[in-house]
Write a protein that binds this DNA or RNA. Structure first.
Lengths: 340, 340
DNA sequence: TATTAGCACTCGGGTATGCTGAGTGCTAAC
DNA sequence: GTTAGCACTCAGCATACCCGAGTGCTAATA
């Protein structure tokens, strides 16, 4: 992408203006608001070039231009300068750490009130977190609740049905056994270990163990299980974004929100890379919506806890503020999860 | 409220017509669609009377009339005939009982897809459920996770900080002690019992116990704690209700959804009465929105588990279908929670 | 006395029309 | 290569208009 300096300046001016006003920007506006020592006519010529290159688009003939997804991408990759956010700005929200689910929820709310867009947090994946403790609690003769507790206090639980004749003592033994063998492992590790063990030694817990394995399989099988672990905050913020002040656009947006598994697929991709990632408009096939972008970052805590968090908003977003904010929030959340 | 039979018939016809079409209904429509052997002029006279009584309103001069909240209230109280819903209709959704939170969520989704409105479920209040088991799991030197498990497999957990010098053994003892003393009690009962005990015997767990009590207090203190236990399903359904096809109306609605505590206050009222309750439009001060109604019922399971569930939709709702549906869902959910 | 037919009136919604202003592209001059 | 000038485009807004559904009132009717 080789643009002349002047073209870059003009593109930048247009994007900045559009981010600020949400209005298509014309050649006159560019020359007036940004002192480039250039006449509108010249700007027009360059704008025509930029349009041909796919950076700009016209809503209609007699309107100014607006940046395309490609322009935002270029802008973010090559000419964005972010200033880091002081952590105090985020710390002062004093998120509650005594209840994990609540922490997740409050983080989305915080993201939302910091950005005025919709905050999103994906809880750490069960399959990849290290569990500290496993507990069985008998509910009735035929059922017990299996509880997995991670080092950060995250809890996953699942009802399992028991053999009729399993005694209280046996259940306790099983619990102790599992804790001894599996504490400090991830679900994934537990599963492979379990498979091996079941092969070599057909012990008496066999049936229950195989049931447990199924439970783990479900939890590990990304999709279904993790849908429950996507949190939104400040959905209403979207109503105040002028880009979405249209009932059908809004409807589309909320439908997308409700289909969490698409979002999960997308966020899963973000979990691998370090730093903040931006998905602009229809760049990705999972959350493919015109005019909607995501700014996402990974957070990490002790005990192999990894999740993602971010913001959903219009592509016309003040990235220079949103990106460092998401970045900082991810760091803070990671710390909160670890440090108790 | 003494209306002549004919007035009642006409009012009923108007309400039915408006529920079906969402269009203001005029005198001609009434005579044409409902055979009452009466001329439009007569209907007009009666409509004028009904308007004066506050049952009807005119959006503008040259439009037909629409029912007021008062009319819906009268309609539901005096002339609604519901036919019970066969439970199979609901059973076939096969809700998942192995994970309580998921059960709640899936119930809202079911309510939504049965009604095409927004489903809502309030989980049983922690303060009033009977707990079967209490467990402490040490997270690190200074923190433990307190886990409360109810007989239905509902889990509440809270991080508590420990005295530095509390040994593993002591924690276990405490756990055993609490289970012995408190299993089968509600949080409320536990609390009063605990207070009594702390007065008479200043034992070594005193400090931790008082901290626990604070935790319980929070959980019991309705508002904050129970907000997390309100589940919505099918928010997007609202976008397809013609009454709400307006961005500002929608915004108002979603703002109301986000303020869960208002809803909690309202649903708390419904928890006391048996049977289905209907809150029409601005009848109540908690969820006061023009044109929005709630149909709510209480569900009950074993172990003193009580919660509410229902549907949020336009006041212009086919109550004769929605009411029995909500009623039946409440019964089924109650059974699912109990029967394991 | 209650009901009804007739009629004038109201008013939202749709359509046609015209104007305005922001913005463009092109051309010719600098 | 840049710029001034000019003709052209088109969304948005306002105005005017008509249509039709619906009302309220009055006078005739059963």
């Amino acid at each position: 992408m080789d643009l002349s300096d002047r073209s870059r300046d003009i593109l930048k001016a247009i994007i900045n203006s559009y981010i600020a006003t949400a209005e298509p920007v014309g050649s006159r506006t560019v020359t007036k608001r940004y002192e480039l020592g250039i006449s509108p006519a010249t700007v027009r010529n360059i704008m025509a070039d930029l349009e041909e290159l796919g950076f700009l688009a016209q809503p209609h003939t007699s309107a100014g231009r607006i940046p395309t997804d490609k322009a935002y991408r270029f802008y973010i990759d090559t000419m964005l300068e972010v200033k880091p956010v002081p952590e105090e700005r985020i710390m002062k929200y004093s998120l509650p750490t005594e209840d994990f689910a609540k922490l997740m929820q409050e983080t989305t709310n915080m993201l939302s009130s910091l950005t005025h867009y919709t905050g999103i947090v994906m809880a750490p994946k069960p399959a990849e977190t290290v569990y500290k403790h496993i507990e069985f609690i008998r509910i009735d003769a035929r059922h017990a609740l299996a509880i997995f507790v991670s080092s950060a206090g995250i809890i996953h639980n699942r009802m399992v049905s028991l053999d009729e004749n399993m005694t209280h003592k046996e259940l306790e033994d099983l619990s102790a056994f599992l804790n001894k063998e599996f504490a400090g492992k991830t679900l994934g590790e537990m599963r492979s270990r379990l498979t091996a063990m079941m092969d070599e030694d057909r012990n008496r817990y066999n049936r229950l163990l195989s049931k447990l394995m199924k439970v783990w399989q479900e939890s590990a099988g990304a999709q279904e299980a993790t849908e429950a672990d996507v949190f939104y905050g400040g959905l209403t913020g979207m109503f105040d974004v002028p880009d979405f002040r249209d009932i059908d656009k809004m409807k589309e947006l909320f439908y997308a929100f409700e289909e969490k598994h698409r979002l999960v697929s997308l966020l899963d991709k973000a979990i691998e890379a370090d730093g903040v990632q931006v998905f602009i408009g229809s760049e990705n096939k999972f959350f493919d919506m015109q005019g909607v972008s995501l700014v996402v970052a990974r957070y990490r805590g002790e005990g192999n806890i990894v999740g993602t968090l971010g913001v959903i908003g219009p592509s016309r977003m003040p990235y220079n503020q949103i990106i460092p904010l998401v970045d900082c929030t991810a760091r803070v959340l990671g710390r909160l999860i670890s440090g108790r």
